[in-house]
């Protein structure tokens, strides 16, 4: 329990999130409040204990929305590279690796070809349980575990269907292995070769998820996908973003406590009046 916090001081939306977590109900926020939060950009919460819910063992997650198209989350290039879009901010906690691992498991991807990228503020990337863009409260894996599994499983099913059409066989006779679709007669096609055809197929409503005892990616210590960039100065952070016409604001602070005025040497640059 966090001490010295009066929860009534928190924004109303955060209060509702906490109340919902105590009821353990997956209730979508009323549309009005969702729009308000969306306007403010994403919401990042600290690790409020009230938001930590017990793992719902064996329960299905709140239903995936039909609008969560696999293409918003996973892109397979012609060369077989699989790019997974994450619906969270990576700030060292590892979701940029963990969420792709979850999807890659059900997709049965070649892990060495998996890349990751951050999602935008598009509605597809909201937390499926809370209904807003959110990274925090130790909720990322818990709330998106089944979501990313189902996305991977759906994409895999579409690849199998595309291969079945191409080979004129029943999809049920086919299997996958680490980024390749295999036919019983030995024919094979890589995901990259099937991707375009697969993404044109309808998204299956129901998918079967793997038995956890068959996991070969999830549960295995895995190097972070952002490790190379972060150890060579290539990783971009907020301070590195340069947009056209971007202004930089700094706080002009007096050098001593309780000063009543800024020192004379401070030069204030005025922003253009239209800003």
């Amino acid at each position: 329990m966090l001490p010295n916090i009066d929860y009534r001081d928190l924004p109303r939306a955060a209060q509702r999130l906490m109340a919902r977590s105590q009821n353990d109900e997956a209730v979508t926020l009323p549309r009005r409040s969702f729009l308000k939060l969306a306007g403010a950009g994403g919401l990042a919460l600290g690790a409020f204990p009230h938001l930590v819910m017990a793992q719902a063992a064996g329960q299905g997650t709140s239903a995936l929305k039909p609008t969560e198209q696999p293409s918003a989350f996973v892109q397979i290039a012609a060369n077989g590279e699989v790019t997974v879009t994450i619906n969270r901010l990576e700030f060292g906690q590892g979701v940029q690796t963990a969420l792709p691992m979850i999807l890659a498991e059900e997709l049965d991807a070649d892990w060495s070809l998996v890349r990751s990228r951050h999602g935008s503020n598009d509605g597809a990337y909201i937390d499926p349980r809370f209904g807003i863009h959110l990274t925090g409260g130790s909720n990322s894996i818990k709330n998106s575990f089944t979501q990313y599994r189902e996305l991977g499983a759906r994409a895999r099913a579409m690849l199998l269907s595309a291969a079945a059409v191409r080979w004129k066989v029943d999809a049920a006779t086919l299997r996958t292995q680490s980024g390749t679709v295999l036919a019983p007669d030995g024919r094979k096609l890589g995901y990259g070769e099937l991707a375009e055809a697969a993404m044109a197929l309808p998204v299956p409503e129901k998918v079967t998820l793997k038995d956890p005892k068959d996991f070969r990616i999830i549960g295995r210590p895995t190097s972070r996908l952002d490790a190379r960039a972060k150890s060579s100065g290539q990783q971009n952070f907020g301070i590195d973003v340069r947009l056209p016409g971007q202004l930089t604001a700094v706080v002009a602070r007096p050098p001593v406590c309780s000063a009543r005025a800024l020192p004379r040497w401070t030069t204030m640059r005025r922003a253009p009046s239209r800003v």
């Binding site: 060292g92 906690q93 190097s223 972070r224 490790a227 972060k230 100065g233 990783q235 952070f237």
Partner: peptide
Amino acid sequence: IEAATDGTDRVGAAVHAAWLKHDVAQCG
């Protein structure tokens, strides 16, 4: 950092490789 870890320096390359092997970076 860009040049120090671009592989052209022996020590820089060893440090970079060790950083990857031990998955050192978190936020980075």
